[in-house]
Every structure is written in structure tokens, then in C-alpha cells.
């Protein structure tokens, strides 16, 4: 496994929550390599460890054993402040519930990663507007999230994940709250703007309708990667 060329390289990663009788093992020795520039989908039933794995891979959760390198760096070994800063610069997030700040406009929401990285407000919001243009809702830059449809909010969330030009974008169930047509449009958009030679996209989903957009699909079950397939389709159980 050439971890230097990989965006994410996990070897023997384990993670357990709780202790005693309430102990739950979420990851049981996961080996996974995500190649730079690909769109990898992480699929599997609820509770199989998908969310835990992307949390570890994105450096927001510490694993117990094994090794997980992100662009060759072991985030777990870093001091918290450095890890947070690195995450702010190199990783973009699209959350299942979007997590847009309800009192900020769309452009201001998109500008947040830039503000976190120290950019001035005006420039950050201008770039946020430009990013909204790229995801085709530039005309709604002044609207607060409650005035936007689910699909539009998802576009704002995608714009926010991309605005600071991260090398890795992590999406958690990006189409779970969208209808089929909107979900397809969102994935089209993701492929168009979020995937490229310098950007890797990891999508956690159990929405089989969007599997066709994946370069590779890793199927998890009971805390392990049980199958990795190249191509655009995976058989459903």
C-alpha cells in the first residue's frame, strides 16, 4: 500500500465506545486506502461503522489501535490545535443535516471555512458568493437557510465544503433527505465541482440510487470493510 500517494490510508484501525457491558466495538481492524482524486463511497447498513470510520479519517475522532494517515500525516499523533488547523485547511465537510447556521445568509455560511482560516469578512463572503455561483444558486446568496429548499441547502453545504479548496471532502449521507431527482442533481454537481486530480471525495451513504457516481465502493459490515469494488455498481444484499 503506497500511503504517500493515497489521500487516506488506514491499516488495522479499531475503535471501541464505552466500557464494561456497554462496550461497543465500532471498527474491528479496518484496512482502507482512498486514492487521491477518486470518489469513494462507503456503504453498508446502519451501525456498521461508516460514520466512525469517516470521523477517524477526518481527524475528528481518535481511533484506539492501528494507523490512519491522511495525506501521509498521522493526525492522531498531532497536538489537538495543529490537527484542528490542518482539518480547517485540508478537509471540507458536507453533513447529513447540512448544519448551516440558521442566522447567516447562504453566502456567509459558505464563507465560514475561510473565516476560520483567517480571511477577512468581506473577501470571504465575496468568495462565498462566487462559490454559490458555481453550484448554481448564486441568486440566493442573501437568503437564510430557512428560505431555501432542501436541495438548495445541500448546494450551500457543498459550496461551504469546497470554498477553501480542500484536498479531501467528506460527505455524510448527502442525498438522504432529498428526492431521487434532486439527489441525482446533487451528485452530478459533486462529481462536477468536487472531484478532480487534486481532490478526493469520500461519500458515506446507503442510498443505492447514487452508487453509479462512485469510482469505487467500499462496503462495510460489523466494523469491517467486507468488499471493495471498482466501477459504478455494487450488488445489493
Amino acid at each position: 500500500m503506497d500511503s504517500a500517494a493515497a489521500a487516506i490510508s488506514c491499516t488495522g484501525v479499531t475503535k471501541t465506545y464505552g466500557s464494561g457491558q456497554s462496550r461497543v466495538t465500532a471498527l474491528r481492524g479496518v484496512d482502507l486506502e482512498v486514492r487521491a482524486g477518486e470518489l469513494l463511497m462507503l456503504v453498508g447498513p446502519s451501525g456498521c461503522g461508516k460514520t466512525t470510520l469517516i470521523s477517524v479519517a477526518a481527524g475528528i475522532l481518535d481511533h484506539d489501535e492501528g494507523e490512519c494517515l491522511v495525506f501521509g500525516q498521522d493526525l492522531k499523533a498531532m497536538p489537538q490545535s495543529r490537527r484542528t488547523a490542518l482539518r480547517g485547511r485540508t478537509i471540507g465537510f458536507v453533513f447529513q443535516a447540512f448544519n448551516l447556521l440558521p442566522t447567516l445568509t447562504a453566502a456567509e455560511n459558505v464563507a465560514i471555512p475561510l473565516l476560520i482560516n483567517g480571511m477577512g469578512r468581506r473577501e470571504a463572503v465575496d468568495r462565498g458568493r462566487a462559490m454559490l455561483d458555481r453550484v448554481s444558486i448564486g441568486d440566493r446568496w442573501r437568503d437564510i437557510p430557512s428560505r431555501l429548499s432542501g436541495g438548495q441547502q445541500q448546494r450551500v453545504a457543498i459550496a461551504r465544503a469546497l470554498v477553501h479548496d480542500p484536498k479531501l471532502v467528506v460527505c455524510d449521507e448527502p442525498t438522504s433527505s432529498l428526492d431521487h431527482e434532486t439527489g441525482h442533481r446533487v451528485m452530478d454537481l459533486m462529481r462536477e465541482v468536487a472531484v478532480g486530480p487534486d481532490r478526493t471525495l469520500v461519500v458515506v451513504t446507503h442510498d443505492a440510487r447514487i452508487f453509479e457516481f462512485a469510482d469505487r465502493i467500499a462496503r462495510m459490515d460489523d466494523g469491517r470493510i467486507v468488499e471493495i469494488r471498482e466501477g459504478t455498481r455494487i450488488e445489493q444484499d
Partner: peptide
């Protein structure tokens, strides 16, 4: 949740 999202996106303590 919003504070946690900010943390995930790189906002430090």
C-alpha cells in the same frame, strides 16, 4: 451542533 460543526471545520478552542 453548530459549535461542533465549527469545530469539525477547523475552529479551535
Amino acid at each position: 451542533k453548530h459549535f461542533a460543526a465549527l469545530k469539525a471545520m477547523g475552529a479551535g478552542n
